[in-house]
Design a protein around this nucleic acid. Sequence first.
RNA 1: GGUUCGGUAGUUCAGUUUGGUUAGAAUACAUGCCUGUCACGCAUGGGGUCGCGAGUCCGAGUCUCGUCCGAACCGCCA
Length: 583
Amino acid sequence: MLRTHNCGELTIKDCGKRVTLCGWLQRSRDLGSMTFIDLRDRYGITQLVFNTDTNKDIYNQAKSLSREYVLQVEGEVKERSNKNKNLSTGDIEIIVDKINVLNTAQIPPFTIEDNTDGGDELRMKYRYLDLRRACVRKNLELRHRLSILIRNYLNNKDFLEIETPFLIRSTPEGARDFVVPSRMNPNEFYALPQSPQQYKQLLMVAGFDRYFQIVRCFRDEDLRADRQPEFTQIDCEMSFVEQEDVLNTFEGLIKYLFKEEKHLEFPKFNRMTWQDAMKYYGSDKPDLRFDMKFVEIDDVAKGKGFKVFDDAEIVVGICVQGCASYTRKQLDELTEFVKKPQVGANGLVYIKYNEDKTFKSSVDKFFSQDDLKVIAEKFDAKPGDLMLIMAGKKMKTRISLCSLRLEMGSRLNLRNPFNYAITWVVDFPLLEWNEEDQRYYAMHHPFTAPKPEDYPILFTKPGEVRANAYDLVINGTEVGGGSIRIHDKKVQADMFKALGFTPEKAQEQFGFLMNAFTYGAPPHGGLAFGFDRLCAIFAGADTIRDFIAFPKNNSGRDLMADAPSMISQQQLDELCLDLKKKD
RNA sequence: GGUUCGGUAGUUCAGUUUGGUUAGAAUACAUGCCUGUCACGCAUGGGGUCGCGAGUCCGAGUCUCGUCCGAACCGCCA
């Protein structure tokens, strides 16, 4: 070992010891006849001191060192005369008598500090330097701790961690696959798994009963702050269970993580049907940190001669407490906000319930004070509140109002990332109509079981069939989701039929799974959590990038390695590939 | 595919609205001074293809068009 101790462990108790430390030069402070150097490693920072009075040679040597040099130093631990309460090692310092420069370093392009002066792009390009910063390192340490806790919890519940292949068969449905050409099988391709879905179901057929895996998944879709092309799932599956068993098992896991990591305890998680989530929050992942539930006011808003309301499929709004004092300018801002193409509303109607109990609205021409009072009662509004109302097509209006609700939540600081509001969303629809392709798609995936009571209407009212599918939502983020699976070959065949597959096509694409179901598949179900998102939520962060050691940027590029890249003609030839010019 | 914002010193930004002298600040860096700092302090100094390319103009960091790059979002993500 090149060191006797690390840079975070020495305390007052170690005074007088002779120690050897290794680390990076964080910063030096030269006071003329003495110099202080902060030596940094993963564990902390220890102050080194060099004094002309005691050792002029070593002082001169210390002066020649610069930031991020890798040093090995020997010296004696001594109590400081001026202590630093902000540092775990702040009571001591090392009187150094020997410096060994293990490596020199260029001046890094940004400062290696929590409040770095580096922007995102630069940090990604020099990610290995970014990772030296304590705040980024702490994120990865959190991720590590959570992964250990997860394995611990699931192991104690008899789950087995079993690896599944990364080179698999491409299947239609779902996200776009990343594909890998096969050299030994010219003109054929593997796909990287979007999730180990079919393999975990096959493990249930194989009798493994309880499976989990903390596993990388790949989806070739456009990215966001919380979406990477490769991301990590906590993938789980159980046999001989019903939905209730799955929910309880994994509610337990999440509670365990919050308790162990953050010392937070939660009562039984809230449950909400998908129908209610859409009706009251306009989203299948409602942010329940604040209220502002949707109120539908068709019955009192229509028939007053206001065409926008009269012609609308739905008139719905939210009541924002204490905002009746909003100025014209603020209301115009909100109108601008909802008219942005991302939100897509045509406009916004407001009703102020003034403190003097009068009303002021943008539709005073059509609504009397009494009319407005009736509406206000519907909202359960109090003097001082502001009602914001939208109208139009049902789903579109709800989704736009959801954006506005979240915006108001943010403006009023109601979205504290460390205030955790957790809910299950259950009873998702089984199928979703796609206008573009004029067919139904599985909302979750094609192996999701319909609710038995809805199975009879699979072909008559496919859009109304509910699934035994569920999502876990924390603070408006979908953290995980799953379902009870189909284990019956006939139900699975019907499902493919409902999705518009011919029996031949279904056999070709999913034959191995359907065949497996003929050999005694147990009833089973499971779910998967987005591990990166879970880590971000525990740290109160919006982006998952800082919880991944080497993430990709917005366009799926690794700015450090500059991937993806061209490959050689020789590689292309081996793979039987010709490149086509992009239009 | 679309919307929005951004690209100026090693870095983070101001300057662009209203085109006009030598493009500034902070920080980083270098040098000097300083014996208790810990965001040390003080002084001095070097550091610029204003992303790139066209155009308008007597004159463009500033206006126009195109293009590249980054970020957030919509579509997309079973």
